[in-house]
Design a protein around this nucleic acid. Sequence first.
DNA 1: CTTAAATTTTAATAATTATTAAAAATATTA
DNA 2: TAATATTTTTAATAATTATTAAAATTTAAG
Lengths: 150, 150
Amino acid sequence: MKKYTRQTKILELISKSEIETQEELAEALKNMGIDVTQATISRDIKELRLVKVMSKSGKYKYATISQSQEGITDRLNKIFENSVVSIDNAMNMIIIKTIPGAAQICASAIDFMGIEEIVGTLAGDDNVFVAVRKIEQVDKVLQEFKKNIR
Amino acid sequence: MKKYTRQTKILELISKSEIETQEELAEALKNMGIDVTQATISRDIKELRLVKVMSKSGKYKYATISQSQEGITDRLNKIFENSVVSIDNAMNMIIIKTIPGAAQICASAIDFMGIEEIVGTLAGDDNVFVAVRKIEQVDKVLQEFKKNIR
DNA sequence: CTTAAATTTTAATAATTATTAAAAATATTA
DNA sequence: TAATATTTTTAATAATTATTAAAATTTAAG
């Protein structure tokens, strides 16, 4: 059982149900065939930078910091969706045309998507340049963008 | 010593220095002449919805959820700054004209400012309507906006 | 003001979480 | 592959945090 797999499951679990303690998380993982101690989970939580915070229902629960902050990803995706005019690519670059003045916004939205294959973004007034690590990865990135446009 | 005062001090303390434990917070408060037990602080943290999370320096620290999320506020303020064309007001409404298509973005940015006096925002294509609770509060809100434009 | 109700705090402790040291598992190098 | 180094995990426990029940304080009502 890979650590990475377990941590992915943890993220999945806390997004689906309200987990109050690390023991509870251990139980839930056990039901998925992943058997670890609370100590390991404590370290996972540290690494994943998860937090325990009062939920609306008045109970403690574990969450990612973005979940605890809630809505930001959706909001930024909407920003992206609302400002893109066209998307083109050449070599390892993707060029996004936006409505006037929205390039900065789009670049921020893209950064926030956390797409690994992207080296960096540069925004002018109505153009965003996206540098992709390798040419082969351009399609993958384009797909990620499409996900966020509708 | 009012509970409210203490909780304000707590927020102040955690924003200034890296507080790792509730005991540490109790100490710091003591040095400010506020003498409470860890139990009370535990409840304060619950009420304030503070979180303990790994900081960049590799230590645990207490933070507000927006501090732990960091950077988003700045980013959204920039979005706001980049898209506002003019600001007007009438009665308890504030009307913001934006560059084409940026109204939604602005409204999001405004929501994120967390200005108490605002009842709600409504965004079209290049106009944002902001409803303020009372007419007297309009100036206060305008000031808050100005803070975010430069 | 006095009494009663509600809220807040403390002291004590239960519950939870983080860490230590040793063991196990993985990865690296020759 | 064997030997060594690195990483990860567990078991045990130290450290931290949340809660309980009682006491103190504050607020509200007569």
